[in-house]
Design a protein around this nucleic acid. Structure first.
Lengths: 203, 203
DNA sequence: ATTCCCATGTAACATGTTACATGATTAA
DNA sequence: TTAATCATGTAACATGTTACATGGGAAT
């Protein structure tokens, strides 16, 4: 619904970015919020400049152009956040595949699940690394805290995806036995936390 | 990349469906794999019929039309699963919003996070209900097992989203203290499972 | 009578992808 | 000198949204 808002979000941190840098943001595997293709970013930037949401902050002889957000852009992003409803619709190709695994035989299904598992494990380690790097800088402003929190969310979600994929063959192939039991246990565990509890040292 | 495959996936269960029923699948909040708008479904169905992936299984005087998958459709979905790579790109409006919360003041950010939290809690209870219903039928074939597993995944992901959102104000507002400590604790917890361990009764 | 759910579409528009084209700079 | 990375675009095409239009059947 809005590459526009993804770009404004990236530029609102205050650092001017060019199309190439923005493309890196939108094609990064660990960045799980917005994807866009290269050409779309450049044309969207031109459109946004014309409508006054962003402006050129620097342009060299080669046409390399950095953009920064304008007051209109800042107003637009606040308007979007505060006065429009989130769009919770999803198009998730890998999830659709996992839902459809039963149409192929067990061997194939297992291969496909393993391929997905290795992808998710790769993401898991990229995220861990990113969080470590992030923690080391310790800038501690609102932008930094927000991003650190988002990485924690992504990692938690990836962790549970990995766990699920590891258990998938078992769920799929188990003859006919204690399915109800398993589900009851799952319900009992739902109170367990992925995140650390508040420490006692807090004011 | 493919409403086509989402439709084939739904029809491959063997039960003929009409456009309206498919629209329910693609607009359901608990269904977290594919969204499509009403009109898109109808035009895609016409296109798919012309290309031979599906065929009309029943049509009444009012034009109400059910479709079923053809052998070509079954071949196509297997080809898609086994011979094309998953597309892991994402466009997630609510995640983008959560990444951008810092641009508004604390009070606003808290309101927005609470709105998202109540949405996720609603989904959480819908999913729990769905899983209970599903468990009660106990059909126990491949389709049923696959779907039950997917609902478990969705629930686990929703649970971790809820936990994260509950902790968000704390993460956001904590003065400047033990952030590194918190992250270390989080790393220690990563072995904890969202899913029940294999029971000892297994063969 | 009226409202809600069932059910299907068209047309104009907005958004996103793919293939192609270009060229500078940096490191091996 | 060759490959990788930085950097920007255009044009044709595919996909998806919004507003609009229509009408049957069931329940209040």
């Amino acid at each position: 619904v809005a590459l526009k808002h993804a770009i404004l979000s990236a530029l609102s941190r205050g650092v001017p970015l060019n199309g190439y840098a923005l493309n890196n943001v939108f094609s990064n595997e660990t960045e799980r919020s917005w994807h866009a293709s290269t050409s779309q970013v450049y044309s969207e930037l031109l459109k946004m400049e014309r409508s006054g949401l962003i402006q050129v902050s620097e342009r060299n002889e080669l046409g390399h152009t950095s953009y920064e957000i304008t007051p209109e852009g800042t107003a637009e992003i606040k308007h979007w956040l505060q006065l429009t409803d989130p769009d919770h619709t999803v198009r998730d190709d890998s999830l659709l595949r996992l839902m459809t695994l039963w149409v192929v035989d067990d061997v194939s299904a297992r291969h496909l699940a393993e391929a997905e598992l290795s992808f998710q494990r790769k993401r898991q380690s990229l995220l861990k690394q990113k969080i470590t790097e992030f923690t080391e800088t310790r800038e501690d402003n609102r932008v930094w805290r927000n991003r650190r929190a988002i990485y924690e969310l992504w990692l938690a979600q990836t962790n549970s995806m990995v766990q699920w994929l590891e258990r998938l063959p078992e769920i799929f192939e188990r003859p006919d036995d204690d399915l109800a039991e398993i589900l009851n246990e799952a319900r009992l565990l739902e109170g367990a936390s992925d995140f650390p509890a508040r420490t006692a040292t807090a004011v």
